[in-house]
Structures are given as C-alpha cells and as structure tokens.
C-alpha cells in the first residue's frame, strides 16, 4: 500500500474540527471557539495525559477501600450483617442465582478492574508514543467508554434496597462506607476515560499512520 492512499490527519494539514457539532475549520487561531456552536476548538484535549493520570491514580487508591469495606449493612432480628461487593456476589452464587452472580461479578468486579488496567495501558502507550497495536488500542478505548457506566449497578441496587427494606423491627438495610468509595471509583474512571484523548494513540511521529 502506498502512503498516498492513507487519509491525512487534520492537525497536519492545518484543519481543526469541532468535537460537538462536527464543523471543520481551517486557519483557526489557538483558543478559538467554533463560530457555529460556540464550543472551544482544540486540536487535542488540553493536558489530556496529566488529567487522565490524576483521575486514574485517585481511582486506583479508592479501589482498595471500595472492595474491602462493606457496601451494605443489614440489621435484622438475627443481628447485623455487612456485605462487601464480593460477598454480595458470593451470596447470589450460593443461593443459586448463577446468572445474576455472573452479571454482578462482571459489572461490579471485572469492569472496574479491567477499566483501571486498560486506562493504564492506554496512558503508558500514549506517553511513549509507541506504534504497538494502535487499532486494537483504539478499540479498547471505545470499549472502556461503552462499558464504564455499568459499574454503577451496585450503587443503584444498594439505593433501592435501602429505600425498600426499612421495616422498623424486622429488618433495615443501610449503605456502608464501601459504597462511597465504590461510587467514587466509577465516577473517577469515567472522568479518566473522558479526559483521555484517543487521538494521542495515533500521534506517534509517522506522517500518515496506517
């Protein structure tokens, strides 16, 4: 394949496009705003790598209490019981709801963990401007963006249970401190994915990447 068939990249030929409305501008001065919709125009998200690192590190730190502290506390006639994310999954497993155990395992355990690892990989690769598997990394980024929201599942479950199970003498369910850190991990990883600029995957020095 000859290099002439490869599409040029906007920044290399002096174009910038509006992320919001899709308008393509030529000769835009720095810090200009899109004259169609008023959004800020920038060739790359400002300080993308530094901001993504900040969100990601905060998420990594909170990931530990999110998994160790109880997300839900049940008080009943038989005493008090604290549930972490993992013990909630185990509960579904031993009571025979295998499909639900699988769903909650994926949404609450696998997705946050894989998201942290994936963002770490994307960041390190972008920082070293490596040409290693760029297309797969672009796919990975889209995957992280698409599945991140599903980790909020446990937060919604705890909210509903805390609203429903308020039967004075019989049983009450309250949210535990783990829910706070877990919610923070979900929000922080979503912010990290949003502040990462996928165009950095392709900014590797060659004039027109494949």
């Amino acid at each position: 394949m000859s290099t002439t068939e490869r599409p040029p990249r906007a920044r290399d030929i002096g174009l910038v496009h509006c992320h919001h409305c899709g308008a393509v501008w030529s000769a835009a001065p720095p810090h200009a705003r899109c004259s169609r919709c008023g959004c800020k125009l920038h060739a790359r998200k400002p300080d993308s790598i530094a901001r993504t690192w900040a969100y990601l590190l905060a998420a990594c730190i909170l990931y530990i209490p999110a998994n160790l502290l109880p997300v839900m506390v049940t008080r009943g006639l038989l005493g008090e019981q604290s549930d972490t994310i993992m013990s909630g999954i185990v509960y579904f497993w031993v009571t025979g709801s295998w499909s639900l155990a699988a769903i909650v395992f994926i949404a609450s355990f696998l997705v946050p963990l894989l998201k942290l690892v994936a963002l770490l990989l994307l960041l390190v690769c972008a920082q070293f401007k490596t040409r290693w598997r760029r297309r797969q990394r672009a796919c990975l980024y889209r995957l992280v963006e698409a599945v991140g929201r599903w980790s909020m599942l446990d937060i919604f479950v705890v909210t509903l249970l805390a609203g429903l199970v308020q039967l004075q003498s019989l049983a009450t369910i309250t949210a535990g401190p783990g829910a706070l850190s877990f919610g923070a991990v979900v929000v922080l990883t979503m912010l990290a994915a949003q502040s990462f600029d996928p165009r950095l995957i392709w900014d590797t020095g060659d004039p027109t990447p494949p």
Partner: peptide, 18 residues
Amino acid sequence: MHLVHGLIVCDECDSVYR
C-alpha cells in the same frame, strides 16, 4: 477562520475524509 464544506474529521484519530 473559515468553515470547510464537504469534509469530515474522525473524532477519535483526527483523520480527514470527504
């Protein structure tokens, strides 16, 4: 600053296409 008609830019890799 001019609007360029008839082009589209990929959000995720900055490639320019007709």
